[in-house]
Structures are given as structure tokens and as C-alpha cells.
Amino acid sequence: MELTVTKNATCTFCGCVCDDIELHSDGVRITHTKAACVLGTAWFKNHTVEKLFPDALIDGKPATVDEAVHFAAELLHAADMPLLYGLSNITCEATREAASLAELIGGVIDSHTSL
């Protein structure tokens, strides 16, 4: 187990996006945070990289990412008015991909802002 220290890490829990957090991790989980608030600490410590969930699920049954990606593409392509929703907890790079996908499938794209 290797202890690593990440300085000036960025917290994505709330809109403050504090970028002065120090994170200590053992390669699997974050064991210690410095400068983070109570919400940020909970957010960082709540995540591990243990494989707790299946790669993908199709109709509730475990599947590979490849199968899930192709089935998702089929469903979105077949739809007349697909909706893309979320965007608040993903990166800007992922949002760009989503905008491009929305154009390709002629869908609606929307975020938490509309709530």
C-alpha cells in the first residue's frame, strides 16, 4: 500500500470548487484531507476505487461496457426525441462530448440549471 499526497487538489462537491485541498491516499481510498470543509471531506472520503459495482448493467443484468455502449447507441438512435440530462457532476470535456452526441441524435440537452 503506497501512500500518496496530492496537493492543490480540486473539490467538486459544491459550486465553490475549492482548489487548495491536500489529499492523502493509499491508492484505494482517500484517508486524510486538509483544508476541505465538512462537505468536501465527506465527499472525498466517500469514494474508493474498489470495484463495488458491475462495469455495466443491461436490464439489471451484468454486461460489458462494450455491449452497454452499443445497446445505448441503438436506443438513442432509435428514439425520436432523446433527452440528455445531468452535466453537473461530469467534467467539461465530457459535457462537450454530450453536446456533440445531442446534435448527432437530434435530442434535447439540459442540466440541473433548469430545475
Binding site: 473539490c11 467538486t12 459550486g15 470548487v17 457532476n89 467534467t91 453536446a99 440537452i109 439540459d110 440541473h112
Partner: peptide, 26 residues
């Protein structure tokens, strides 16, 4: 703003489509 990157979602959609959210490309 509440969630971490809700602002980023608005910004990206603004510069790709011209609008911040609730956009139809149908």
C-alpha cells in the same frame, strides 16, 4: 451554484449551442 460543475455545463452549452440549458436540437 450548487453542484460542482453545474456552471461548467452552462458555459460549455453556451459556447457550443449559444444557450445555457434546455436546448432542443431536434
Amino acid at each position: 451554484r450548487g453542484h460542482g460543475n453545474v456552471t461548467g455545463g452552462d458555459v460549455i452549452l453556451r459556447y457550443t449551442t449559444g444557450y445555457p440549458f434546455g436546448i432542443s436540437l431536434s
